[in-house]
Structures are given as structure tokens and as C-alpha cells.
């Protein structure tokens, strides 16, 4: 637990020294949403129907390309080797990186979502459901990204490759998340979708750190 907090603190400290990255990602998210509205046309009845899909796609598009560099600092500086040689379990480090990434990159997106919802003519009454579904979905996505980043350490075209690996695996998150929002829109029960989403995220929470630890060891083996 202490090791988790240590790594989390180090990661957050590192993110704070590069606030530009976070702002750029947030800007990307906002721009994609705006362009989506431009592409779809602002007629509010039609926009509301597909607005949720647009919001989720904007979130995915802004998160996925940056995964490749998740471990860049640790790998390039050789710190990863130090971790692998130490008695500390690697999965705790992975969990700390995912948590750190969530706090520094997902939370700003969630904070911007009310404005995005207004742009997409989604009723603000949906905000709790959107925050819950997007919040959970992004958590799952980051866990997948942690694995994707580890698998593609040292690969050519790492960013695209990580995206190709993560996106198919994130289909359940997207489906359950968007359906939750759409259920809220049409006054249908939201709970089943959120429960399935939570279950999926829980599954990833257990599997991804372990698989990622393994992948990081593999990456170090082959250098």
C-alpha cells in the first residue's frame, strides 16, 4: 500500500511538471466534440440522439493516442529495470500509474463534460448518469491502455499499435456506457447498464495489472 502511494505521488508530481500535456489532451477532447457537432449539424433533436456517441468517441480519441508514452519516463531512464530487480510487485506500480493517469487525464475530461453536453444539446439532467458512465468507462479504458502501453514498449508506431490493441478490447465499455446514457435519455432503466459497466471495470481491475506486470517484464527481457 505504501509503495502504491509512493508511485502514485511520483507519477502525479511528474504530471504536474508537464501541465501542457494535460491541457493539450483536454483541448483535443473539446475540439473533437466541437467538430462532431459541426459534422452532424446542430439541429437539436437529431443531435441529442447521437450526442452521447459523439461524446464517447471524443473521449476515446483523446485518451487512446497518449497511452504509448505511459511508461516512457520509467523505461527510458532505466527506472523500470530498478523496479523489476526490486522485491516490489510490479502490478502495484501499474495500478498506481493507472490511478495517476486517471486523476491527471480523465478527471479534466469529466470536468469538461457538462459543457460538452450543452454543446451536444444533451439535457443536463443526464449529468449524473453521464459522469458515472464516462467515469467508469474511462477507468476501464485506462486499465486497458496500461496493458497496451506495456505490450508496445519498443515497438515501431507504438501509438497507433497501442490504439489497435486497446480499441477492440474496449467495445464492452463503450457499449455499456453509451447505452446507460441513452437509457437515461429515453427514461428507461439505467441501472442494468451501469452494473454491467462496473462489472467489466472490476474484471479489468483484477486482470490488467497482473497482465501488464507480465508484459513489462517481457519488455525488459528483450530490451
Amino acid at each position: 500500500m505504501r509503495f502504491f502511494l509512493t508511485c502514485l505521488a511520483a507519477d502525479l508530481r511528474a504530471s504536474l511538471t508537464e501541465p501542457g500535456d494535460i491541457l493539450a489532451q483536454l483541448g483535443f477532447f473539446i475540439m473533437i466534440t466541437a467538430l462532431f457537432v459541426l459534422a452532424a449539424g446542430p439541429e437539436s433533436d437529431r443531435l441529442a440522439l447521437i450526442g452521447l456517441a459523439g461524446l464517447w468517441m471524443a473521449a476515446l480519441a483523446s485518451m487512446v493516442p497518449a497511452f504509448e508514452r505511459l511508461y516512457e519516463a520509467e523505461a527510458r531512464s532505466g527506472w523500470l529495470d530498478q523496479l523489476l530487480v526490486s522485491p516490489q510487485p510490479v502490478w502495484v506500480f501499474v495500478l498506481a500509474k493507472a490511478a495517476g493517469y486517471y486523476i491527471s487525464h480523465a478527471v479534466p475530461l469529466l470536468l469538461a463534460s457538462p459543457l460538452m453536453m450543452i454543446w451536444l444539446t444533451l439535457p443536463l439532467a443526464l449529468l449524473p448518469v453521464v459522469l458515472a458512465s464516462l467515469g467508469l468507462g474511462l477507468a476501464g479504458l485506462i486499465l486497458l491502455g496500461a496493458l497496451g502501453a506495456a505490450l508496445t514498449l519498443g515497438a515501431r508506431r507504438g501509438a497507433i499499435l497501442a490504439a489497435i490493441l486497446v480499441l477492440p478490447l474496449s467495445v464492452p465499455l463503450l457499449i455499456f456506457g453509451v447505452l446507460a446514457g441513452q437509457a437515461a435519455l429515453s427514461q428507461a432503466p439505467v441501472a442494468p447498464h451501469l452494473q454491467l459497466l462496473a462489472a467489466a471495470v472490476l474484471f479489468l481491475l483484477v486482470l490488467m495489472p497482473l497482465a501488464t506486470g507480465f508484459a513489462l517484464r517481457t519488455a525488459a527481457e528483450n530490451g
Binding site: 505490450l151 478490447l169 464492452p172 457499449i175 447505452l179 474484471f203 497482465a211 527481457e221
Partner: peptide, 27 residues
């Protein structure tokens, strides 16, 4: 170099496949 990462991906994929199938059916 790609052999082991790909193997890890395949195993993770097999475990995720039922969930993906379920989510598509749900959809």
C-alpha cells in the same frame, strides 16, 4: 521481440472474448 507480447495479448483476448460477445448481444 514481438512473440511474447503477442502471446500475452492473445491470452487476454481469449479472456475478454466472452465479455465482448455478451456486450454485442446486449447491444
Amino acid at each position: 521481440r514481438g512473440a511474447r507480447p503477442a502471446a500475452i495479448l492473445a491470452m487476454v483476448g481469449v479472456l475478454n472474448l466472452p465479455i465482448v460477445k455478451f456486450s454485442v448481444d446486449w447491444w
